[in-house]
Design a binder for these strands. Structure first.
Lengths: 127, 127
DNA sequence: CTGCATCCGGGCGGATACTG
DNA sequence: CAGTATCCGCCCGGATGCAG
């Protein structure tokens, strides 16, 4: 899906088939897996070490913490710094690109908060 | 995850366990399934009939078109109008709530478009 | 402390066939 | 035209065990 933004105009979808390469769908799918948003939000506050994240995000498995961080890293949103201390320690922080994502993400978060009651009502009505 | 927004401050995550009820994660997970964004974008332009969508969104299965529309409907983002003509015809359109989502969604879409090259570069580098 | 390897259940989403 | 029903493969994500 190709996207054209001019002024307040909305993204302009193409019949698709190209939709796989749509950067908007792409970023949405990445952000939406179970722990990504939470990790981005945490790392938006300050850098964290691995086990610090593991404790801060109650309920996450080590496997998914590693996987999610690796994905964020390979997308250029998070960077990893290894300290060769003993015991070793690794620090994760948002890259400038990651920081730049916080603003539009906050806009969407704001919508979710402002309208959660309406969504909840709609669900109850059509349950 | 509870969320607190004051001014430019970012969503404020709580250790989680509550994260399941976080409205932000909730909306992100809904928006991010395969066809939702594309359908919202299309319906943001004008109302569509069922088969019109089926043809416009090349590659979608009838099953997923129905499922996605039903979910959007039960979330209060889309409304369904049935015309008892023969053959019958059904029209789908965004609700006011759905329309209100377009703006923050466009913000995120804009980010995705503006930074897609950086993300692509990062992926190539760490492939 | 910071991971990787393996196994496994559940849900997303495609294909196909059938209906009012 | 606008769906429903069924089957099925795949990948997300949890649990557990092992390693540098």
């Amino acid at each position: 899906m190709r996207v054209v933004l001019d002024g307040d105009r909305l993204p302009d979808p193409v019949p698709a088939g190209e939709y796989e390469t749509c950067p908007v769908t792409d970023v949405l799918r990445r952000l939406s897996d179970k722990w990504t948003l939470l990790l981005i939000t945490l790392l938006g506050r300050r850098p964290y070490r691995f086990n610090e994240l593991n404790r801060a995000v109650e309920g996450i498995s080590q496997r998914m913490l590693t996987r999610t961080l690796r994905t964020l890293e390979s997308d250029g949103l998070v960077e990893r710094e290894v300290f060769g201390t003993s015991p070793p320690s690794v620090e994760y922080r948002l890259t400038p690109l990651g920081v730049s994502l916080l603003e539009p993400l906050s806009a969407l978060a704001g919508w979710a908060v402002d309208h959660q009651a309406e969504v909840a009502d709609a669900r109850r009505r059509l349950a």
